[in-house]
Amino acid sequence: MKVIIGNDHTAVELKNKIVEYLKKKNIEVKNIGTDSSEAVGYPDFGAKVAREVVQSNSVGIVICGSGIGISIAANKVKKARAALCRDEKDAEMARKHNNANILALGARILATEKAISILDTFLNTSFEGERHQKRVEKLDNL
């Protein structure tokens, strides 16, 4: 599994902790977010992650202060399905029913431990397919 991760300036610390966690689990990580606290635009990073996720058929993580703006940006990319998750149930349903390929997190909203727990749920939950497949295809063709 390969994870593409991107973030704005508000999320450098959380991103670094997530990257460290994933590497300890021997998961390949490509960091395309900022590593600086200097203000940058979250739309650039959300779109960049989404494009790479769709092109490489991998999984992405996008993080900004609330997770809202960067998830909106990611979802502008055709076939990107970014889900803003605040808890493990959100992550589970995003994967099972929507085949979300990008997890969006809010660095100012979630403690690191909670964010990692949500991430684990996201990565360890599979798409159920079947009745949900047609809906996902509709999303991809919007």
Rank of each mutant, 00 (worst) to 15 (best):
A74F: 12
G69H: 04
N31G: 04
Q133V: 13
I102W: 01
I18G: 00
N141K: 11
T34A: 04
K30V: 15
K25T: 10
F122S: 04
D44P: 03
Q55R: 14
L22S: 06
T112A: 12
L119Y: 03
A82L: 02
I70S: 07
G33R: 09
I116Y: 02
K25S: 12
K15T: 07
R81S: 04
K76Y: 10
K138C: 01
L84C: 04
Q55V: 11
A83K: 08
L139M: 12
G33T: 10
C85D: 06
K79T: 14
N57H: 14
A73V: 07
A91T: 10
I68Q: 08
P43S: 13
K24M: 15
K17Q: 15
V77E: 09
F122A: 08
I32D: 08
D8N: 07
D140R: 09
H132P: 01
L142M: 14
V59I: 15
K76V: 02
N99A: 13
D120K: 07
K15A: 04
K15E: 05
Q133P: 00
V29H: 02
G6K: 03
I18A: 02
I18Q: 06
K76R: 13
N101R: 09
Q55F: 04
R95Y: 08
N99E: 10
T34H: 10
I72F: 09
T125D: 01
A107W: 00
F122W: 09
V59E: 07
T34D: 07
L105P: 04
A39K: 15
G69S: 09
N141A: 11
R135N: 09
A80S: 14
I70T: 08
C64M: 03
G41K: 15
I63A: 05
A11P: 04
I68K: 00
G67H: 02
N57Q: 14
K17M: 13
D44C: 05
A111Y: 10
D35P: 02
M1I: 14
A82P: 01
V40N: 03
H9G: 12
E137L: 10
L103G: 05
A111N: 12
I102V: 08
G46L: 11
K30P: 00
T112D: 12
G60Y: 00
N124F: 06
L142P: 00
N124S: 11
G60P: 06
I70C: 08
N98H: 14
V12K: 03
A83M: 06
I118R: 05
L110K: 00
A115W: 00
A47M: 15
H9A: 07
A74G: 06
I109A: 04
A91D: 13
N16Q: 15
V3N: 05
L84S: 05
K79S: 14
G33E: 06
T125P: 00
D120F: 11
L110T: 06
N141F: 01
L103S: 01
A83P: 04
Y42Q: 08
L139S: 02
E92D: 11
V29N: 03
N141Q: 14
E88H: 03
I32Y: 01
R81K: 12
A47I: 15
I18M: 09
A74S: 12
A111P: 01
I68C: 02
N7P: 05
A94I: 05
F45A: 12
